[in-house]
């Protein structure tokens, strides 16, 4: 099949404004991913196209992009999912994710995103001495299950940059940082929940969430992001973790 690929291009050294690049690709297999198509443009048509990617298998979280208007990982989005069955032609539009400064073409500056990530202290905090037998701190399967979902995050930023509250004000910590906070707040072995609740309960914390569900729909790992945020909201209002 043939795909008309429309890519949002911007080179800060040459362009005053972003522009749309149009590329026609023949012999596209519906099982190709959008990343495959971007590779073909870069390798066969225009080598200046700039994008981030690493593993190309949905694990590293490097290639979050806005595909046909909504955030997704380019490597996990198959052409077949974007077209009607049996179609011989298709138009696919690719843009950088929103709310983060564009460095070049599809590459954005992820630093503000990682600053929010760091602000929730995304590491295990426990000041009590480890068990005397030198073994791990034990936890029941039920306690482990409470935060299982939020351990899956790959920090691709698809959720945070799909959130209208984040577009409106980049100081909002965003869904990804709250997911990371959730992972530790609800860990029975962790003792840093008070510090984290202080960050996520602040002006630019969870109360900026408007329950839009864009984050849940955008997550390539199918994390129930809005649910996790609501659980943190509930922990803040009830004082119970």
């Amino acid at each position: 099949m043939q795909v008309q690929l429309r890519i949002r291009r911007f080179n800060p050294e040459k362009d005053e404004k972003p522009w749309w690049g149009e590329y026609t690709l023949d012999n596209v297999n519906p099982n190709d991913s959008v990343l495959d198509l971007l590779h073909r443009v870069k390798w066969e048509i225009d080598g200046t196209l700039t994008l981030r990617r690493s593993c190309a298998h949905g694990v590293c979280g490097s290639d979050a992009m806005r595909i046909n208007g909504a955030n997704a990982l380019a490597c996990k989005t198959l052409v077949a999912r974007l077209i009607k069955e049996g179609a011989t032609q298709a138009r696919i539009q690719v843009e950088p994710i929103l709310g983060l400064p564009v460095v070049k073409d599809l590459v954005v500056d992820m630093e503000p995103f990682f600053e929010h990530y760091k602000s929730v202290k995304p590491y295990f905090i426990n000041n009590s001495p480890p068990p005397e037998n030198g073994r791990e701190r034990l936890q029941s399967p039920e306690d482990r299950a409470r935060y299982d979902d939020t351990t899956k995050c790959i920090l691709c930023a698809a959720c945070t940059t799909s959130c209208p509250s984040f577009w409106a004000d980049g100081r909002y910590v965003g869904p990804a940082a709250i997911v990371q906070a959730h992972r530790f707040i609800f860990d029975s072995r962790d003792e840093g929940y008070a510090e984290r609740l202080k960050v996520v309960g602040d002006t630019f914390g969870v109360w900026r969430c408007r329950t839009v569900f864009n984050c849940t729909n955008a997550c390539p790992r199918e994390i129930e992001v809005t649910k996790a945020i609501a659980e943190v909201k509930r922990a803040l209002t009830t004082g119970k973790v």
């Binding site: 806005r66 208007g69 929103l98 799909s162 209208p164 839009v212 569900f213 864009n214 729909n217």
Partner: peptide, 11 residues
């Protein structure tokens, strides 16, 4: 972008 973003029903 609120108008352009292709969110689902929640959007």
């Amino acid at each position: 972008e609120s108008m352009r973003y292709r969110g689902r029903s929640g959007h």
